[in-house]
Simulated assay, not measured.
Amino acid sequence: MKLHYNSFDLRFHHPFTISKGTKTHQPMLIVALEHLGITGYGEAPAITYYDITVDKMIADIQAKKMFIEKFAFTEPSRYWHYLHHLLPQNPFLVCALDIAAWDMYGKFKNSRLDELFKAELAPLDKPLPLCDFTIGIDSVEKMVAKMQEKPWPIYKVKVGTADDIAIVKALREKTDAVIRVDANAGWDLETALKLMPQLSELGVEFVEQPLAKDNWEGMKVLYRESSLPLYADESCVFESDVARCKDHFHGINIKLTKCSGLTPALRMIRQARELELSVMVGSMNESTVGSAAIAHLLPYIDHVDMDGPLLQDEDVATGLVYDQGVVTYGQGPGLGINYTGLYER
Rank of each mutant, 00 (worst) to 15 (best):
K2T: 12
S7W: 12
F8L: 06
L10Q: 03
H25W: 14
L29S: 05
A32N: 10
G37R: 01
T39P: 03
T39Q: 13
I47F: 13
Y49N: 12
I58E: 11
I61T: 02
F67S: 14
A72P: 01
W80P: 09
H81A: 12
H85D: 15
L86Y: 07
Q89P: 00
S111N: 12
L113G: 05
D114C: 15
L116K: 01
E120V: 09
L121S: 02
D125I: 07
L130N: 15
T134R: 02
G136A: 07
I137G: 03
E141K: 01
Q148H: 09
Y155S: 00
K156R: 09
A162Q: 13
I167K: 00
I167E: 00
R172G: 00
D176C: 07
W187N: 02
T191W: 14
K194A: 14
V207F: 07
G218Q: 05
S226N: 09
S226W: 09
E234A: 04
A243R: 11
R244C: 07
D247G: 05
I254S: 06
C259I: 10
S260N: 14
P264G: 05
R267I: 11
R267K: 15
S278C: 03
S278V: 08
V279A: 12
V279S: 08
M280L: 10
M284S: 06
N285L: 15
E286Y: 02
L310K: 03
Q312Y: 04
D313A: 14
A317T: 01
A317H: 01
G319V: 03
D323W: 03
G325V: 06
V327D: 04
P333E: 08
L335I: 01
I337E: 10
T340R: 11
